[in-house]
Amino acid sequence: MTKNGSLLEQAGAWLLALLWLAPLFYAIWAAFHGSAHVVNFDLSAPLTLDNFALAWERAPFARYMLNTAILVSLILAGQFLLCTLSAYAFARFRFPGSETAFLVVLLQLMIVPEVLIVRNYATLGELGLIDTFTGVALPYMASAFGIFLLRQAFKGVPRELEDAARVEGCGTLGILWRVYIPAARPTYLAYGLVSVSYHWNNFLWPLVVTNSTETRPLTVGLALFGAPESGVDWSVMSAATLLSVAPLLVAFLLFQRQFVQSFMRAGIR
């Protein structure tokens, strides 16, 4: 047996890869053909763009896409701000209770906001934030995962850099801005990509919080669109599904290496 493994293994790896791509290929194929042909699995059927036009017409996908983009940006901005500040405190300050506080923060890795949907929905109601972008975004802004990753990155920054900045007259926040944030840039990229992919795809919490076209993200809009009551056929459904995944999928295909490396970087904690 060679280092590359047997031919059988190569074939196995490729077969699995094909199997893994098949559902997506199938959806792409279905989206470009008439539904009658799709049901009959007619490979010689003519190509058409009607399904996309129909899907685009029947539901405000452009609006949903905008909503998702706003939501994802809002969450990311909030996470960067809140997690940076906390991670800085945990990485570079000695204060009583810091160890305990950090362990308490880590608890959130297990108890994500979705688990407490009923209670959190009530809280949003009291704050008057139901059906707002802020309402969907707020619970995710303090992410234990983000705090953890950034704290690790900040701890790797040499103290000498901080001392040099202090000599030049930087204050606490100046040091954070000039020294720590630039040094942790790869971590920000990694965490950002993971966060964007997570929230682009998130469903349950936005489903509960939003109830109008103006706030509903793509995932929720797509679920409504696909509900059996709406009587949409397969081809249109496939087109709508592709429309919703297209932005992230295209970004992923273009920046494949960064995506995979970001997930790996975020994975080695």
Binding site: W20, L21, P23, L24, S197, W200, N201, F203, L218, T219, L222, A223, G226, T241, S244, V245, L248, L249, F252, F259, V260, F263
Partner: peptide, 10 residues
């Protein structure tokens, strides 16, 4: 890796 970045709903 591709299925990972697709939303569960899709």
């Amino acid at each position: 890796f591709t299925p990972t970045i697709l939303p569960m709903i899709a």
